[in-house]
Design a binder for these strands. Sequence first.
DNA 1: CTATTATGCCTCGACGTTCTAGGCAAGTCT
DNA 2: AGACTTGCCTAGAACGTCGAGGCATAATAG
Lengths: 111, 111
Amino acid sequence: MTEQQKAALLQGTLDMLILKAVSLGPLHGYGVIQRIRQMSGEMLDIEQGSLYPALYRIEQRGWVTAEWGENETGRRAKFYSLTRAGRRQLAVEEESWDRLVLAVAKMRQAT
Amino acid sequence: MTEQQKAALLQGTLDMLILKAVSLGPLHGYGVIQRIRQMSGEMLDIEQGSLYPALYRIEQRGWVTAEWGENETGRRAKFYSLTRAGRRQLAVEEESWDRLVLAVAKMRQAT
DNA sequence: CTATTATGCCTCGACGTTCTAGGCAAGTCT
DNA sequence: AGACTTGCCTAGAACGTCGAGGCATAATAG
């Protein structure tokens, strides 16, 4: 019954999360949501209305490629795979994230 | 020489930073920028075009109060002070920030 | 058998925040 | 005189996220 403490997303973090999720292996959109939820220990919940536009954006930028296929139960689904550029981008975004987290930490301990 | 590594802000973090800066004592707008820069070890640089609208917003919400005064050299400036509600809000935003940082950390170490 | 839930894709418009680029005034420094 | 710093502000654009919808198929519950 203990209510899960959801974390609110900040604008600009979603791409990193999606790239991270897909970096563990090809995945369809709906699965990205589930994988992010699972990887984050149920703390992150992505809305479909956020995901699909984001996936489109990310594909346009060449960070993932998409192709139609079937899931294990035979249903059609669009599978996304991380490209080399996507892997680079993920590294860039993680680094940028780390810098911000560090900067905020400094703010916190400042007198 | 060694270029400072600036951290890019994410949408939604600015209020927390401003509240944090003002929590160390009343401050005028321009000073908020300087204090944030200093507190973050030169990592965070707030644009005036982001700051003033944010201050207005924050004042409207009752998290700070503003009043005109003079700085130490006798120049007019608008001084902002944290309200009780502002202190509460700061706590809320810090907690929310921590949750997101934790969630992202979990994502990172997930296999 | 029928209704509901879960899986899977998508679009649209509203919303809020930040940034770029300006403008203005007064003081300091060369 | 000119440039730079301090100090305030605004307007418009850009961007990403969310809420609310729509559609189709499959699985589960009643």
